[in-house]
Write a protein that binds this DNA or RNA. Structure first.
Length: 270
DNA sequence: CGGGGTTCCTGGCCGC
DNA sequence: TGCGGCCAGGAACCCC
């Protein structure tokens, strides 16, 4: 599932392909999750940005106020730039560019979402609107992160997945970072010391995944259809029953707030 | 207003 | 071999 490293990998690949291109035509699946894609027509793409797991395309020259095309890849979404689109039952949107190429949004399970909003107006996307700071924002420090974590009595993993304490962390990297920091995913209080460890672990895990073009478990693909390689480096996510890489205790897995969580019962004791 | 529950989706996998 | 049933899960949405 695309999280920050996967979305950033896609952003970096899209940027040179889309910047300064004009969108000359578009079509989309009729679902309200995808239909807004066509509203990007006639705009020029000023740049491709990312906030958390959201891709933000600056839309200029639309006739009125600047807009933003917002794309969330959901679970199985992918963006691809192709010369000539081939038939695909899972294509949910297609934008034709003024260089003759096409930007295609493919999403088997339709958990993704496309919106066109006035630039910076994210009221229709509550998670984006209330998104926590970027993990690599130097303004974010251990004290600030602890304050954000302490603002909720929810389980720390559930809180991370809400995107409110920090942006871009999903199930894979939450499990990985909590494992590295030695914090139980169900903990409801995380002190300043552990918050510091967790922030460092999150940054390390996300940076390393980005260096490996993300984690391809099944669906995630880069813009050119390639795969990431971080799946070979996972130490916790999806490894229930395997020995912990630190202490050899078998990792355990359980549903926590309706989400699968995997952790080491020894290294990540309550 | 924070938090909890529900819903959207379909391929892959398991077991018989 | 075929097929019913179950699972994965981000974020919008609804409700208290």
């Amino acid at each position: 599932m695309p999280e920050l490293p996967e979305v950033e990998t896609v952003r970096r690949q899209l940027e040179p392909l889309l910047t300064e291109r004009r969108i000359v035509d578009a079509e989309a699946h009729p679902s309200p999750k995808f239909a807004p894609a066509v509203r990007a027509v006639a705009h020029r793409v000023g740049g491709v940005r990312r906030r958390g797991k959201y891709l933000l395309f600056d839309l200029l020259d639309g006739g009125d106020t600047p807009r933003e095309l917002v794309v969330h890849l959901g679970m199985t979404g992918g963006l691809h730039v192709v010369d000539a689109p081939s038939p695909d039952p899972y294509r949910r949107a297609r934008w034709e560019l003024d260089d003759g190429r096409h930007l295609v949004f493919r999403d088997v399970r339709r958990f993704g979402r496309i919106a066109v909003v006035p630039a910076g107006d994210h009221r229709s996307l509550p998670t984006l609107h209330d998104l926590g700071p970027e993990p690599f924002d130097p303004v974010l420090d251990a004290g600030g992160f602890h304050t954000r974590l302490a603002g909720s009595r929810r389980r720390v993993k559930t809180h991370l997945l809400s995107q409110r304490p920090i942006a871009g962390v999903g199930n894979i990297y939450a499990d990985e970072a909590l494992w590295r920091a030695g914090i139980h995913p169900g903990a409801r209080r995380v002190g300043p010391e552990r918050a510091n460890l967790l922030l460092t672990a999150l940054r390390d895990v996300l940076r390393e995944a980005l260096d490996h073009d993300g984690t391809t478990l099944r669906d995630y693909r880069t813009v050119d259809g390639g795969t990431g390689s971080n799946q070979f480096r996972l130490e916790c996510y999806g490894r229930a029953g395997s020995p912990c890489a630190r202490c050899r205790t078998p990792l355990t897995s359980r549903l926590l707030d309706q989400r699968t969580a995997t952790w080491c019962p020894s290294c990540q004791a309550r």
